[in-house]
Design a protein around this nucleic acid. Structure first.
Lengths: 231, 231
DNA sequence: TTTCAATTGTGAGCCAATTCACAATTCGGC
DNA sequence: GCCGAATTGTGAATTGGCTCACAATTGAAA
């Protein structure tokens, strides 16, 4: 991908802003900042105030929580083109979550006021935004459902199907999940432990559902996977 | 509460619609229907199409899922003044969830087209709607967080704190949760079993955090409860 | 009040998944 | 290619919470 020369280029390539007029884009551009983060750096912390939303230009990040004893739980993984921190638009209380980079990332930070102004004046954007929040919420609810009453092994299966939707790409031998996640990271996503994830993945490989290649997972039998884990 | 004579009275008392003009209200009124449901009746099923949103006029309902082996998991409980089924505004795919009454309920059903028209023309409503979805999403994320890596006992504690926020009212001896939920229903909300909930509640009572009276729970020591379970 | 259904309480046995501990492998930077 | 760090693999011991089974209590309807 070409380096991001200017913010406008980038804004245009983001789902939410794709339909903005030139002047709206220019306005947003004036009121946003590009920030770069090395791998493993925090973007914001739970106690910080929610005063801006972020658009991911490049890289990979996790949105998560830290439980009492330092355990990390991961709510979502976001990549280029995604938006996060949009709760800032509801109110500006504290974030309540931690966002940190999994890879070096470049972010576009848009101040709360700027985006709110835009939403108040452009009904198209407001509706588009509704839609994005709605879709995000649906994903959240599905994850909630997948956690209640489901065994650790099955939660992992369901997570892989989720990841396919978000990061899947066709590949010779099946569907590849194009980002690399450690077993620990997968465990954080399903509320389990690293060891249990290792064992479950091995089992799925033994059953021929899965294989791994160059650090990424490949779902060999997507349909069988769905039949096995969904509903 | 007075019986709902006309829909307008009711619409006006719903957060989302409180600021509508007379003509907008009249328009909505023309395009909505009142429906009554006895206790335990389904409002819609997971496979049905999402073609309308609902406003609760009176009663109590649960929004939930049914897992493979017939287990019920509950995503949320809603009461008078609440909105549900609003995913219909994002798209009209299938509901994906079941809604059923816990008490006899009266609902206002508003067709998808009507509400979408309203959102497209009135930016105030669109923004208010954004807000409601946002707040709802925040609650969802918190519940997600409360399920990952948290013991069954602690999940129950956190749930009670959530319920206090949604249904709490001051009472002589503390904060009363003004709706009655069976141990089974509490278990459905935290992904646990009826027996485990019984034991955990007994423990909290023994510790003096909790008491029950006339079928409802009373949190005697709200601050201690928070200190014990939050963060 | 009586009666039947639903809810609550409690114990025994069991199993999935966690913790802990350590070895094998792979990765990333120099 | 080499080396320290991170990740992955695997076993043994432990346990939280589930299942099953049944009794006690409370609620609702007639």
């Amino acid at each position: 991908m070409a380096p991001i020369e200017n913010k406008i280029w980038f804004l245009k390539h983001c789902e939410l802003f794709s339909q903005l007029s030139q002047s709206q884009l220019a306005n947003l551009e004036r009121r946003s900042f590009v920030k770069s983060f090395p791998k493993g750096a925090p973007v914001y912390l739970p106690r910080e105030n929610a005063d801006a939303i972020y658009v991911v230009a490049s890289g990979l990040l996790r949105i998560g929580h830290i439980t009492t004893e330092g355990k990390q739980s991961t709510l979502a993984i976001v990549e280029a083109g995604d938006i996060f921190g949009e709760m800032a638009l509801v109110d500006d209380t504290e974030r309540g979550e931690i966002v940190e980079t999994l890879k070096a990332s470049r972010l576009l930070r848009i101040e709360r006021d700027a985006i709110q102004e835009l939403l108040a004046t452009d009904i198209q954007i407001s509706i588009a935004f509704n839609r994005i929040l709605g879709l995000r919420r649906r994903r959240m609810e599905r994850r909630l459902k997948n956690l209640l009453f489901v065994s650790s092994h099955d939660r992992l299966g369901l997570l892989l199907l989720d990841l396919v939707e978000q990061f899947g790409e066709a590949s010779g031998k099946g569907t590849r999940i194009r980002i690399r996640l450690s077993h620990q990271e997968l465990a954080n996503l399903i509320g389990s432990t690293r060891e249990t994830v290792t064992i479950s993945l091995a089992k799925m490989k033994r059953e021929g559902l899965l294989s791994s290649e160059r650090n990424t997972l490949i779902i060999k039998e997507l349909e069988m996977m769905k039949k096995r884990f969904v509903n």
